[in-house]
Design a binder for these strands. Structure first.
Lengths: 111, 111
DNA sequence: AGCTTGTATTACCGTATAAGCATATTGTAA
DNA sequence: TTACAATATGCTTATACGGTAATACAAGCT
């Protein structure tokens, strides 16, 4: 369960940085694709309808944050998730958003 | 546990937005302060050494995202956490960062 | 009413970042 | 080597965001 510890001021910046990495829709889509298994860059491109340079750039950022790892397979660069906690975080956010929408809906139905 | 469901493209933008809210150090510090209990704006200001308009602005953003709720007590505006999942997320990030630093340390000790 | 404290808002500035395009690099095969 | 496919990188532009300062608003007090 959550430890709910107070985080130090230095740590705050690292945590904020991680959240920033996760705060881009394109990157979330890429991670979403990779959830099913490792993919090459072009495979991600075709699944996301984003440009190849764009995908490459985002993959580099994700790799730099340690969320994704890279290996070469001949001509291809194969990327895969290297930190599953990102999906747990996404689930937490989804649940939070659901709860929020539900309470908002209640407000409307009462009014 | 994590459900690891695939999130829809519309949802991606909402999730990204939530992460963006969490990606600012100042906001994380404010949330960190509020973890111990409700506080007025000036109390947060004194704890964070940020300017009052700055704190107010961030609080508005946090409230808009439903992470914090506001009530008036006379002259004061009292803010408090309204979504505890944020701390769970912070813990996840902290643990992830720890793991990462640990493996990096191993790399160095081997080399 | 006027005064004071606490809070919110506005307007501006500087910075950061994502997307697009062109180009460079890497790796493979002929 | 050349040619080609896959991937990465620079560069530019547009946009968004955070901080600051000045100001406006709200609520209590005399």
């Amino acid at each position: 369960m959550a430890q709910h510890r107070k985080i130090s001021e230095e740590t705050v910046y690292l945590v904020a940085e991680r959240f920033k990495i996760m705060s881009d829709p394109m990157r979330l889509m890429i991670l979403n694709c990779l959830q099913e298994g490792p993919l090459s860059v072009m495979e991600i491109v075709s699944k996301t309808s984003a440009s190849q340079p764009n995908v490459s750039k985002h993959l580099k950022i994700l790799q730099g944050a340690g969320l994704v790892s890279r290996r070469r397979s001949g001509n291809l660069a194969i990327y895969q998730i290297s930190d599953d906690s990102i999906f747990t975080m996404c689930d937490l956010v989804c649940n939070s958003l659901e709860r929020r929408l539900k309470t908002q809906a209640e407000v409307f139905s009462v009014a």
